[in-house]
Amino acid sequence: MRRLDALRAVYSQLEGRIVVTIMGAVAAELQSIGHRPNFFYLQHAMGLASSLGLGIALSRPDRQVVVFDGDGSVLMNLGGLTTLARYRPRNLVHVVFDNESLLSVGGFPTATSTGSDLAGIAAAAGVPRTQTVRSIDEFTHAFDEALAAEDLTTLVAKVEPVGPSAYVTDLSLLENRFQFQRYLKESRTTR
């Protein structure tokens, strides 16, 4: 499974949901499908996308939050899985694209390439719903189930270590940040 195809497969489900991604390939690929004001790309601070998603999920329990994370990022903040599990925001779906490598810096293998099991780690941390999927059909089914379950889910999607040809896009970081904040503000006042 390619990550870009996985993102395309669930893209329509992201409408009206709050989306946070990590840096690099995930951000560039989601933008290549089509940026929306409800998408925020954390273009650095590896590991903190799930924490940022937790901060939003706790602050906006009326909305579902989807975090698109990666194996390298999760490995930098494994403790954050215990914090996610501890507060168990039922409106948070945590997707981890696991390509078993640090792709954007040259493809160096991460510890998931030697057997570390992120879904297993999340389950052991106390995340109530965890799953590892390897095909687009499995992924879309599991993603839909996670949205419907309305409980904290960590969904690990094993993907090929391939990414876009470039990582810098024409959406500036601060433009994205203020547009996203304004989206969240307006989505609150209109409900």
Binding site: A45, A49, I56
Partner: peptide
Amino acid sequence: GISAGAHL
């Protein structure tokens, strides 16, 4: 990260 999310 949590404070950033809360702020946004």
